[in-house]
Structures are given as structure tokens and as C-alpha cells.
Design a protein around this nucleic acid. Structure first.
Lengths: 198, 198
DNA sequence: CGGTTCCTTGAGGATGATCAACGAGGGTGG
DNA sequence: CCACCCTCGTTGATCATCCTCAAGGAACCG
């Protein structure tokens, strides 16, 4: 979703700069603000006791993130971090809740956004529950392509490192590498100069 | 969420009986109706190519289910099945969308429901991504207790079979059994007469 | 060209899945 | 009341595979 910036500022929002790798909020923080990315990108992730990160999602310019806990007086279930130098607009929970009550169009598109998130999480869960690495990776690649692909049907480059793919799929780097090598041999992906195409 | 039954009937909803184990909708069906349980309970699940089921959620009397695809013109990502003889009220997508536009209170509580679903799915994903069976099972048990527990802090009986726990956690029955036995030895659960307490 | 980050490979081990078999309980019908 | 069946719980042995640890190579950038 994208709420108009002027509208947000009218309601008292402020923009804040975050450096690359700066944490925006931590897991277990109480949710107090609505965040929308003006410039840059943000990753939501959590770390388990083994020190292994899992990426719940990446949000780009124009997207909001971390809204669900606002509506149910909950704490954040994961951390969020700026993946590059970013500008993020924030507005207090109360004002955000007022905005989605006052503007029917925003209300509708926000509701659709939530529905889409649930839908995507269901798909992700289906993929991640599957033990086979190739299946998980393929699901991730398809999801990426669906949301970022040109519709020509041709292969597109995947702009993530093996480590990042590992964090998206809940696998280890080495497993990702070995699985991608197999997939390359089976012509399911292309790898040129270590760059991955799907 | 619970929409008032009279209201739903006023808008043209109809109630339908489903036998135990009857499928309500299939994965990949286009979403055309809003469903709310009047009597009985419903499971959303999907089956992977190994024939292993994963349970995405169980919905009880008073709950609605399968709403997200309605809002985004999508197909269902999983199947739904009546877990017992049930009565379910259904109303067309268009009428449902009108209702949530017309009634601010319903709109708000529906939005909160969606937010809660996202929140819970995030928690579930965190648990399921963790390879350790004990962690996954504990997360499941805690989730169950949180939503069904008396607040006395005492142990409650878990009304699911080992197979059902396996389907909730993405593990195999034998693994669930062995893990539960270990947890019993470590006093993390109680097992009396094969009944499980947490 | 030195450092950093990312990619790759190999060997070994841990562990969950799989397969097979049996036990336990509850309900039903004779 | 008992025999039977059906579902659920349990156990053991074996297998497949992902993770782990360790090492080195390739690309990129100042």
C-alpha cells in the first residue's frame, strides 16, 4: 500500500533517515508507529537461537511495513532493518488508525494489502514446510519472478546472494549452492559468472 | 470475526450442512463466497506431493474462514474440510464486500482479524522454520494454550491426536511421539493414559 | 594489490523420515 | 460378555539428506 505522502505529512508524520544496517524496530518492541518507505528498502527478519536468520519479507520504496501489530496491540514478531541508506516516514499509531477510518479508499486498499499478505504467507508456509530444498528454492524464485518479472516469459536475474536466498528459504548457504548447481544441470536455472537467472 | 447471523441472512446468506470430512472448497478453486461457521468446525489444509498434509488452521463455531482470496480475486491456496457435521453460512463475495464497506464496526473488526491472522502466521513460520522438533511442538502447544487456556497457569489437555500435531507442525507422527516422550521425561509435558497435557 | 565479501567443494556427522510391526483403547454387533 | 475391528499410539532399525565444519577460490572495490 502507498498512502499519499502529503496526506501523511498533513496528519503530522515525520520522515527519518536510516543508515544501511540500522535497525528500525526490534522483535518484542511494542508497535507504536506506522512506517512507510520513501527511499530505500527494508528487511523484516528474525534470528533463531542457532543464530540463523530467516527473512520474512523485503519491502521497497513506496511500501509500508509492520502494520499488523498496530491493529491488535501487539509486539513486533520480528526485527526490521534498513538494507541500504533509507528515508522512512513514520506516524503515530493513533493517527494511522484514524486515517484508515476516515478515508474509505485507503481503508479498502489497506484491507486488500492485508489479505494479500495473508495469501502470500500461506504460500510461503506451504513452500517452507516442504523439506526438499529444490522445492523451497523454486517456490522462492517463482514468487520473486511473479512480483518482479517482466511478462515476456524470459529468464530474469535474481538479485540476491546465496546467503540471502538461504535466509528466505530457511536453508543453509551450502545447501542453496549445491541445490542451485543441480538445478543448473537440470536446466531449471541458469548460472553465468555466478549470477543466477530464473 | 463473527458477523451477526440475522444481518447475513438479511443480505441473502444461506446456511448449508456439511457432513464430517466433506470438502467445502478445494485448493485452486476461485473464491466466490464468504463462509462463517454456525455449528461445527473446519480445517484448512494442503497436501504436498508426498501425500503429507499440513494444517494451516482450525476454525470453530462463530468463525469465518477463507476470506483473504475474496479481497484480491485469488484462488484458494488450500483446501477446507468439515471436521465434524457442521452448519456453515455462505454469502456471495459481492455482498460480503458491500457489508464490510457499509458497516464500520464490521469493517474494523474484520481488519483486526486480518492483522491477527498475519501476526499468527508470522509466529507459525518462525516455529516451522526451526528444524528442531521440540521447538516446533512447543510453539504449537503454546499457541494452542494461549488461545484456549484457562489463565490459571495450570496444565491443560491437548485435544489433538499425535497425527494432528504432526500435521500442525510439519513433522511425522513418529517424530512427534518420540519428541513428546523426551519432553515428558524432561517434565515439559505430562502424558497420562496417552493423553497429553501442557 | 590487498582486503572483503561471496561462492564453492569435500568429508563427516546428526537427525528426521521411512518402513515394518506391534500394542492399546474404544466401540459395535453377535 | 466377548470377539472383532478400527483408530491411535509406540518402538526399533535403517536410510537419506541436510547441516556442520573446514578450507580454498573467485569477484569486486578501494
Amino acid at each position: 500500500m502507498q498512502i499519499d505522502l502529503d496526506l501523511l505529512f498533513t496528519w503530522g508524520a515525520v520522515a527519518k533517515k536510516y543508515q544501511k544496517d540500522e535497525i528500525i524496530f526490534y522483535e518484542d518492541d511494542l508497535a507504536l508507529f506506522f512506517y512507510q518507505i520513501v527511499e530505500g528498502s527494508v528487511k523484516m527478519f528474525c534470528t533463531n537461537e542457532d543464530g540463523k536468520d530467516f527473512t520474512h519479507g523485503i519491502f521497497k520504496k513506496g511500501s509500508s511495513f509492520g502494520e499488523p501489530p498496530l491493529l491488535i496491540d501487539e509486539v513486533y514478531p520480528c526485527n526490521s532493518i534498513a538494507m541500504e541508506n533509507s528515508v522512512i516516514i513514520k506516524i503515530s499509531k493513533d493517527k494511522f488508525l484514524t486515517i484508515i477510518e476516515e478515508y474509505p479508499e485507503i481503508n479498502k486498499s489497506f484491507m486488500r494489502l492485508l489479505a494479500l499478505r495473508i495469501f502470500n504467507k500461506t504460500i510461503t508456509t506451504k513452500a517452507v514446510i516442504n523439506q526438499k530444498p529444490e522445492f523451497r528454492i523454486t517456490a522462492f524464485l517463482e514468487h520473486f519472478k511473479k512480483h518482479n518479472g517482466n511478462d515476456t516469459g524470459g529468464k530474469i536475474q535474481i538479485p540476491y546472494t546465496r546467503q540471502e536466498i538461504a535466509e528466505f528459504t530457511g536453508l543453509r548457504v551450502e545447501t542453496v549452492i549445491r541445490t542451485l548447481t543441480q538445478m543448473k544441470n537440470h536446466k531449471k536455472v541458469e548460472i553465468t559468472n555466478h549470477k543466477l537467472f530464473f
